[in-house]
């Protein structure tokens, strides 16, 4: 599973190609906006894919970190007069710090207990955002100021398409390098057998914690980008359903696959937009698609297709 340099180039090349092709094929502002949303969600899904695929840990509250990133970006300028970009940086730090603090006790838990603990964490973040009405605007959400760099207003779907797309490319590059690093190898060992890994001298707890913090940072980055791009956030960004959506992205795309996270994010972002045409049938079709994907492409879209392509020569 370790990506060699060739695979790394292949993945990044494929991503870059898609990034270049989308604006040529779908030039309308609306399509670019949806694409930008895909890239943003993909960044969050990437972090979670590392956690789930590499460290074998599930998080049902990952949107909580997205919420921290998004709300920091919104609240910094409003209450502290900070620059939005600086606030976003603070939000990312905050999310990382929180993950570091709660990571140890939470990651000690196994299987479903880990699931419910992360779930609780996400719900607590969501609840704070909903309840602290004077600060956060409560359930109705809050406006985010426009981002200005050197006096230039960063607006328009086209510009944001590139900002988010390039961020995703960088995030993917970092993730690939992490997989290939010694920490990555230690984590893969841990995924296979925690006991064996600790026997050969891997600091299991530390390795898990590192990936948990990285995943939180990715989610907060995605949250911040979303806030700046959408210029409006509601507590739903940190909600339980968002967390589930993120996990579903990773699993549908293919756990442990970088490209898979992107494909999963694309599917789950575009599908609801496309399904609005079905009006009343929207939810039924979404639910059915999820079941069908999971039943028929159990290992996920990307690994599933890759297996079909490379069936002749075993990888």
């Amino acid at each position: 599973m370790a990506p060699g340099t060739r695979t790394k180039l292949l993945v990044l090349g494929a991503l870059g190609l898609v990034l270049l092709l989308v604006p040529l094929l779908l030039p309308s502002a609306f399509h670019l906006r949806v694409a930008a949303l895909v890239w943003i969600n993909a960044v969050a899904a990437l972090g979670l894919a590392l956690l789930m695929g590499l460290a074998g840990q599930v998080s049902l509250g990952h949107a909580g970190f997205m919420g921290i990133g998004a709300y920091a970006t919104a609240l910094g300028p409003k209450h502290l007069g900070l620059d939005p970009l600086l606030s976003m940086g603070a939000g990312i730090l905050l999310a990382g710090a929180l993950a570091f603090l709660v990571g140890r006790p939470i990651l000690r838990l196994k299987g479903h207990y880990l699931a419910v603990a992360t779930l609780g964490l996400g719900i607590l973040v969501h609840l704070v955002l909903v309840s602290e009405v004077p600060t956060t605007g409560g359930p109705d959400g809050i406006q985010v100021p426009r981002l200005e760099l050197f006096g230039i207003r960063l607006v328009g779907p086209e510009l944001w398409y590139w900002i988010t797309g390039i961020t995703l490319l960088l995030a993917a590059w970092l993730a690939l390098n992490l997989e290939d690093s010694s920490t990555g190898r230690a984590l893969r060992a841990l995924h296979d057998s925690e006991i064996a890994a600790s026997v050969v001298g891997v600091d299991v707890a530390r390795a898990k914690l590192v990936v948990f913090v990285i995943a939180a940072v990715y989610a907060a980055l995605a949250g911040g980008l979303f806030a700046l791009f959408n210029r409006f956030v509601t507590p739903d960004v940190a909600g339980f359903l968002r967390s589930i959506e993120l996990v579903t992205m990773v699993v549908i795309g293919g756990m442990g696959s970088i490209l898979g996270a992107v494909v999963g994010a694309a599917l789950l972002t575009v599908l609801p937009q496309a399904l609005t045409l079905f009006h009343d049938y929207e939810h039924a079709v979404l639910g059915l698609s999820i079941i069908l994907f999971m039943v028929f492409l159990r290992q996920g879209i990307v690994p599933g297709l890759a297996a079909l392509v490379t069936r002749r020569r075993p990888a």
Partner: peptide
Amino acid sequence: PAKGATVVTLIIVTIGASILIRGLAQI
């Protein structure tokens, strides 16, 4: 049909089912 899949995959199947049931109930 999803027998033998990982825990997380099965969780997602049931979540998909819950969305489906809700969607059908709404209709």
